[in-house]
Design a protein around this nucleic acid. Sequence first.
RNA 1: CCGCUAGU
Length: 242
Amino acid sequence: TVTYNALIDGLCRSGNLKGATKLFSSILEKGLVPSGVTYTIMINGNCNAGDMSEAFRLYDEMLSRGILPDKFTYNALIGGCCKVGKLERAVELFNEMLQKGFATVLTFNTLIDDFCKLGKLQEATQLLKVMVDKQILPDNVTYTTLIDGHAKAGKIKEACLLFSEMQERNLMPNAVTYTSLIEGHSRAGNMSEASALFKEMMDKGIKPDEVTNHVMIHTPCKEGNLVEAFKLQDAIIAKGIQ
RNA sequence: CCGCUAGU
């Protein structure tokens, strides 16, 4: 079963949901019993493909076989529901999880990210408070998600506040965190702040990765700030970063 | 570490 699971997961990840579904059916035909993990992989694959009706069909099938969902299953379903805008259903599942004590920092992170993407920044920030109340500690992904959400909404001030707050909690910003914030400043036309952050991250020994460099160079271009883009590009080359 | 979250 473990081998099948890995194969199915691989197929889902490479976007071959059809192949994964075939393999899954073949397991059933052989009279083998898929495990909860098998179902979760299939459910997650369908969620990522936006096919929530199939995801829920599988979910029901797994329940009818007496296989209980765990935090992975719930998180996948919640993420899928949010992606297709079925917030009510997501919140229902979320409450179920809370009752069962299944909610983890990942659950919150998933929800917070989806709320941010739907432009519900208030609710997303509220969830941060809820999780702290529940003694589930936010991690750097939680903050990075919120920072990115606020930065993309043009709420740079809030993004910066969150950035300080996360450091007060002794959470380390990583390349993703910096990149989100840099992009925010850059899109707001504040290149000096963007390069200051870029420098700060290097001083801390955090290596900018390909996304960081892409953002540094392309965002000012989009804003019509070619001069800045070239300056930054030179700086990047000078530091010997790829 | 067989499966669920963040940035281009």
